[in-house]
Each structure stands twice: as C-alpha cells, then as structure tokens.
C-alpha cells in the first residue's frame, strides 16, 4: 500500500504530529505548573473542605459506634415511613441482617454514610443549578457540555489532579463521587421544570404569582416525579463509584472488593459486591416508593 503513495511528501503519509520532545516538554510544564499550584493552594483548599470532612467523620462514627440494633431499627423505620411498603421494609431488614452476619456491618456503615453525604451534597448543589438552567437557554447550552464531560470522562483521569491537590482520603473520594453522581439531578431538574404544563404556569401568572411563588407552588411540585428520578439516578451512580473511590483511600465496601481483585479472593469479592447491590436496591425502591406516594393526586378515582 505504502508504495502507492511513494511520491507524496511525508506530512501526507504520516500524521504531522508534534515532535516527541515538544510533547514531553509540554506535559512536563503543565504538570509542574499544577504541582506548584497545588503546593501553594492545597492547604487552603483542604481547609475549605474541612467542615465537610468533620461532618462526614462525625456521621460515619455515629453509624459505627451506635449499637447495631439501633441503627438497624432506625434504617428500617426510615424505609417504612418513606415507602409504606411491607415488602420493601422486610426486604431491607433481611438484607441488613445478612450483611451483619457475613461480617460486613462496619464497611456497610461507612459506605452508607459517604453515599448519604454525597447524595445530599449533589442535591444541594445540583438542584439550584438545574433550576437556573431551566430559566435560561444560554445557561443550558453552556452547562450541558460540562455535564457531558463529568459523566463520560473516565473517573481515573480526574482522580489524578484531585489526589495531587488533596492527597488521598475521604474528601478527594467525596469529590470524585459527587462529580460523577451530580449530572443526573441537574439534568432532570432542568428537564422536569421545562416540562411543566404551560397552561398551569399561565394560570399562576394570571393570578399574579411572583417568580418565587411560581417556583415553589407550581414548578417544583409538578416536576417532582422527574426530579425524584434524578435523585434516584444520582444515588445509583454514587454507589457505582464506591469501588473507584476506595482506590484513593475511602474506606467501606469498596476496599474489600479492591483487595479481592488484587488477591483473587472470589468469595470476599462477591459478598461485598452483593452488599453494595443490596444497599442500592434499598435506596432505589425506597426513594421510588416515596416519590410515588408524593404523586397520590394523579390517581383519578371518580366514576
């Protein structure tokens, strides 16, 4: 084949890439700059996240140090009051008992605590962004590509700068999980608000509602099913990141899995994997049943 193009200049035969020396120089310069930046700012940024870390540690200790039967009772009670479903509640009870019996109670508590905090953080940051996006097409056009990057960029890639900046530990783990898990809540809040019935919104306008009243009385309640789907997705994606986060020192169900991979401990891997699945299902079914209960008004019961 190559002989066919023999007469052509070099740059048409082989891609005219930058010289290896230049490329190496470029990466080295950027890396050095970033290292200098993290040396200068690392401490400040760490201090900024300090309160979050304290809260996370406090919550983790609370879950681990409280006697197991109290935690079990509280979790089962929360599931019951959110879902009002006997099936889901009993399922949760059995799953937690099995997790305890197979010696994964502490790790499960750690995972539970980081997932809870990550989800809350994603909601607190993500929903306002979604609301802002729904009000401006320009903002939507600007944020959408960022969300695409957050969701598709392999997480190991942004693991590197985060570890360089903050070292290993809970906070970098939390950041990695939140970056990956936040896009669905932003996207679905935006979508949900945009899908609110225009006529109902017009009625709210016709009665002189202020922007805030429209948001709280009409837009958020009517987009709730979509927002709940977003929260559900966020929880699922946060759980999916547990193993990756364990790479940078987040303790929990991810670490035994990591250990199992490196040492070929098949049973340990499966057991911890199943524990993650169990937590995922508990979160999923409970949040969905809760979302459905909020939508009771949709049932038409007249003849």
């Amino acid at each position: 084949m190559a002989s066919l193009f023999n007469g052509l200049p070099d740059w048409l035969v082989e891609f005219p890439q930058l010289a290896g020396r230049d490329l190496r120089h470029m990466s080295r310069t950027i890396d050095q700059e970033y290292r200098a930046f993290s040396r200068a700012w690392g401490d400040a940024i760490e201090n900024f996240f300090r309160p979050l870390l304290d809260f996370l540690l406090w919550f983790e200790n609370l879950l681990i140090q409280t006697p197991w039967w109290i935690v079990l009772a509280v979790v089962v009670a929360i599931v019951w009051f959110a879902s009002r479903s006997v099936k889901i509640t009993i399922g949760t009870f059995i799953a937690l008992i099995l997790i305890g019996v197979f010696g994964m109670w502490e790790d499960t508590m750690r995972t539970l605590s980081i997932i809870t905090v990550c989800t809350l953080l994603s909601i607190v940051i993500g929903m306002p962004i979604g609301i802002a996006m729904s009000r401006s097409n320009k903002l939507q056009a600007a944020i959408n590509p960022i969300l695409d990057v957050m969701q598709t960029m392999p997480s190991f890639v942004y693991l590197i700068p985060i570890v360089m900046l903050l070292g290993i530990g809970l906070i970098p783990g939390l950041l990695v999980v939140v970056i990956y898990a936040m896009p669905p809540i932003i996207r679905l809040t935006n979508l949900g608000i945009r899908l609110v019935d225009k006529e109902v919104l017009e009625a709210a306008n016709a009665f002189g509602s202020s922007g805030w009243q429209k948001l709280v009385e009409v837009q958020l309640p009517l987009s709730l099913p979509t927002i709940m789907a977003g929260i559900n997705q966020t929880i699922m994606m946060a759980l999916a990141m547990v193993v990756v986060a364990s790479l940078i020192g987040v303790r929990g169900l991810g670490q035994p899995v990591l250990q199992a991979i490196t040492n070929q401990y098949f049973t340990q891997g499966v057991l911890n994997g199943l524990a993650i699945v169990a937590i995922a299902i508990i979160f999923d079914r409970t949040s969905q049943a809760y979302g459905k209960r909020l939508q009771r008004h949709r049932e038409a019961s007249h003849g």
Partner: peptide, 23 residues
C-alpha cells in the same frame, strides 16, 4: 404593578381549567 393588578383587579378562567393538580 402588573402583579398587584393581576392579584386584585382581574382574574381568569381557562379553557382547559389549568388547575394545580397537586393541590
């Protein structure tokens, strides 16, 4: 002023009711 006008002076009934389904 327009908001106050809509609140107190003029109100509206819609073809497809436009009620708030969650209330």
């Amino acid at each position: 002023a327009l908001r106050e006008f809509r609140r107190h002076k003029i109100s509206m009934v819609f073809q497809r009711f436009a009620l708030l389904p969650h209330k």
